[in-house]
Amino acid sequence: MNFTVLTLAEQIILTLAALMLFTSFLLLAQTRLLTLIHIFALQGALLFATTLVIAFTYGRHHLLISAALTLGLKVFFIPIQMQKLVTRLDIKREVEVVGNPSLIMFGAAALVLFSYYAVLPIRELSMLATRNTIAVSLAIVLLGMLLIISRRKAVVQVVGFMCMENGLMFAAVAATQGMPMVVEMGVALDVLVAAILFGIFFFQIRTEFGTLDVDKLNLLKEVD
């Protein structure tokens, strides 16, 4: 199937999907905390744009509320709070050492391939656009997990967690044109509470351990 066969809206959505996936790769490669948070905000903005496009093309007006929530939470509230926190804890200059950057990039590329492979057998996805959006959202979720396991700073783990949430919202919006309103509100509430709790934890960890390196959290073991 050819890209130009698709409607304009579908082309825009696919482009946005590609950009979201690209920002996930940027997050994985970025080692400075402050820039990392800015890229995360950019990914939120792309999600917001996708939601808007779908809301207008398919006439799903309840998605506008969902778009507003994304804009408020993922583009402004969470990144700004994180930025404040990073400044307050004075870790914004800290450069994180990532295990082996090229290895992680290869792993990430493999995960994207795997996501396409996993959604391949689904018959109803013969339409190019939907198949891509589901595969891309799965890839974003998996890349978020990779970000969590490859970094030591608690702040980056939270960015990874929120990045997974972006992937999930993208799946809900792009593949199914939005979950029922009540579910979207519930999910947004959970994200908000989670963001606040993460903030509380940063301070608790910082107070007790004197650092935000999760490597230091190794007191509890499976067997003694």
């Binding site: 351990f209 999760v214 959290l217």
Partner: peptide, 11 residues
């Protein structure tokens, strides 16, 4: 410290 570590892991 232990309980905070447990809470973080749980979360």
């Amino acid at each position: 410290p232990k309980s905070i570590e447990a809470g973080w892991k749980y979360f």
